[in-house]
Amino acid sequence: MKRVPSIFISYNPNSHEEETLAVRLQTIGAVSGFEMFLPDRYGKNYVDDETVRRIKSADYFIIFATNKLSRIVLEEISIAYEHFQDPSKILVICNMYHSNSIGIDHSEMTLVEFNPQAEGVEAATKAALDIISKKEKSNQNKNEIDGLLAFLGIGLGLLALISLFSKDE
């Protein structure tokens, strides 16, 4: 049986765009056979035990960031790094125009910058895969990598739509 990775998708609490993207990816991933996790944030301004459990149950931590990362997301990334001990399992994917302001120690994660005006989703997805493959310590099987690649492509496509039609850009 083919193994599909489990994914924890985070988002900044005050970003409607990021939350919508995370929920859409959670739905797409779940119907595609991925085991998906979102943070338990409703009415909370801290990382609770359930969110920690979800992070530790996942194979990957991913955020498609449109803004500087919040204190809660930075704490989630630290928890993920403490658990994985592998920055290739923690993907922060952001519009390159915001990457200098995301506010994170890059040694705990893999930053994938994306310029939706200059490059296609395929190029950014390939760049993300190249970064993951170079940093990956375990022997992932091809199916797991292909599944993650397809998932990242969908997320990058949605991020591109947000970036291209954002009022701020």
Rank of each mutant, 00 (worst) to 15 (best):
N45P: 01
E19R: 13
S6G: 03
L38M: 12
A123M: 11
D49V: 13
Q117W: 14
E50Q: 14
S32R: 14
A65H: 09
A22E: 04
F61Q: 00
G120A: 08
K56W: 03
D49G: 05
K56Y: 01
Y81I: 06
F61T: 00
G29T: 07
A30M: 09
Y42W: 10
A58K: 03
P116V: 07
N14Q: 12
C94D: 10
S10L: 02
S6L: 06
V92I: 15
M109A: 15
P87F: 08
D59L: 04
V92A: 08
S70E: 06
H106W: 05
H83I: 02
R71G: 03
N12R: 10
R24F: 06
D59P: 04
A123W: 04
G103C: 12
S101I: 13
E17L: 10
E119A: 05
A30Y: 06
L74K: 15
F8N: 00
L74S: 12
E82W: 04
F114W: 08
G43C: 06
V31E: 15
G29H: 05
I55S: 00
D59F: 03
N45F: 09
S6E: 00
E113K: 07
F34Y: 14
I77S: 02
S78G: 13
S10E: 00
P87D: 03
V121F: 04
E113P: 00
P87T: 06
K89D: 03
G29C: 11
I79V: 13
G33A: 07
H83Q: 07
Y42N: 09
Q117V: 12
A80L: 04
G103I: 11
E35D: 09
L74E: 13
D40G: 04
Y42H: 12
A30V: 03
E76V: 01
D49M: 12
E18P: 05
V92K: 11
F8Y: 07
Y46P: 02
N14L: 12
F61M: 01
R41H: 09
K56Q: 14
A123K: 06
D40K: 04
Y97K: 15
I90D: 05
N45T: 14
L91C: 09
H106K: 15
L21H: 03
L69D: 08
G120M: 08
G29A: 10
S15V: 00
K68H: 09
H83M: 06
V92C: 10
N45C: 07
E35N: 13
E122D: 14
M96G: 07
T51S: 10
A65L: 11
T20C: 05
R41C: 07
L74T: 11
S78K: 15
R71N: 13
E122I: 10
F37R: 07
T20Y: 05
I63L: 05
E119F: 11
D49W: 08
F84I: 06
M96C: 13
Q85M: 12
K68R: 15
F64A: 04
P39K: 07
I9W: 03
S32G: 13
E122R: 05
E50T: 14
D59Y: 04
Y60M: 06
A124P: 05
G29V: 09
H83V: 02
A30L: 11
E82I: 02
F114R: 01
F61D: 00
L74M: 11
V31W: 08
Y60L: 08
E113I: 00
I90E: 06
A118N: 14
F114H: 10
F8Q: 01
I72K: 02
E75A: 04
F64H: 07
Y46N: 11
V47N: 11
R53P: 00
P116A: 10
Q85P: 01
